[in-house]
Design a protein around this nucleic acid. Structure first.
Lengths: 222, 222
DNA sequence: TGCTGCATAATTGCATGTAAAATCCCGGGC
DNA sequence: GCCCGGGATTTTACATGCAATTATGCAGCA
């Protein structure tokens, strides 16, 4: 029942399924930050042998969802407020770059998709639908980075998002939804106008404000 | 003889030694881009069993020194001109960020170390000592990123440098040494003046020019 | 109660066996 | 000459065994 009961799709390795399952367990909190990732224990729990579990845990370490010390095993990584701030400093310039490149590479279709995400976001905020609001927010950012035409940027921002998700499990971060909407509108306006520099500035300003909020909340938390 | 003849230091795993040895083989060209990383063959060559070799190859894949397709093994990654340009777009904003943070965090000691690196770079350029010139160049950039106080930035720029080194094995990139010196002087001047914005701009402009050179050479190559 | 030291148990990291799949080699057909 | 198909060979990915190391539990002592 608790096994890796995936429909073994073509070319699927057990290690991939285990890795995905472990990610899920981490993000749902089933494996909280600091939990030991014992290979034999997980192998029994997931009803597979130790080899694919070992591979999966090593991958999680590489992805920094887990941290390890040699000969002492791996534990679910803990992303603290300080690390999150550092990540947001990086995110600021990467989102700025993505917005600039998106203007240079993309066309009307992007603008329409962004407008739609923004409308959904607005509607979800009005009805206080947190899940839909978060989804539309994430979609807005994903549309921009996937339109930027730079695979490195996409990969790095995906990593950033993963780390942020992990941090959310321990650090509470409530970004003001109204501010985010205003920021997104400014970004869309710049992209719509074809102004790459303005888009970069607006995207950076957006993340800058989120980071300021983070730091503020971290200080209160301390 | 060809084995992993490391002095097995405390806490050292065989897999670590193998990973380091494989990196070395990749960067020296002993394993050229596209070469298959056959686990049994490497295990025999390095005189270890297949397990640590497997772990090492998986890590190289995660580091993107190798690429793999499921069930078809891994090969040494090939970083083409297009990928390198994408990497330099990212590098531009990251070096800019590092320079800005360095101004905000560091003090006189950084300025002195940078001045020294710049002097060495200048001297090496005058005597046409390519190795010393490259070393001083790399040192200048390393000093800045390690002074920035953001572990994420350091890690990402280290990754960038690794990818660039890998690309150098296939793509020839000769950056104009005089331009680099001028750029570095401008960066140092801004840092010395404590002007974070100017430092960010100067660092970005430096990488921007390197990227323009890359694109130019790539076009000639095509 | 709280700490120390030892025996037990569990885990890590490496070695090796194996089925299924991919690659390679080579002769035959067009 | 060039492409296709079939069998031998290699390789991958998983399973499992094992020694060294580390964590754990527990008795004894202050």
């Amino acid at each position: 029942m608790a096994g890796v009961n995936e429909t073994t799709a073509a070319g699927t390795r057990v290690a991939d399924a285990v890795c995905e399952r472990l990610r899920e367990m981490i993000f749902t909190g089933e494996l909280p930050a600091g939990a030991r990732l014992s290979v034999p224990a997980l192998a029994e729990r997931l009803e597979v042998s130790r080899s694919p579990v070992r591979d999966a845990v090593l991958r999680l370490v590489q992805e920094r969802l887990a941290s390890e010390e040699p000969r002492r095993g791996a534990v679910v990584a803990h992303v603290g407020a300080a690390e999150l701030v550092a990540i947001y400093e990086v995110r600021e310039v990467l989102e700025g770059l993505a917005a600039r490149l998106a203007v240079e590479n993309a066309g009307r279709r992007l603008v329409r998709a962004l407008q739609e995400a923004l409308d959904d976001h607005e509607a979800a905020t009005r009805t206080a639908d947190l899940a839909a609001s978060t989804e539309a927010d994430l979609r807005f950012h994903r549309l921009i980075r996937e339109a930027c035409g730079n695979a490195e940027v996409v990969r790095l921002l995906d990593d950033v998002q993963t780390q942020v998700r992990l941090a959310m499990r321990t650090t509470t971060v409530t970004s003001g939804p109204r501010q985010a909407l205003d920021d997104h509108r400014a970004i869309l306006t710049a992209i719509d106008a074809g102004d790459a520099t303005a888009a970069e500035q607006a995207a950076r300003a957006h993340i800058f404000r989120l980071r300021a909020l983070l730091q503020q909340q971290a200080e209160v938390g301390v």
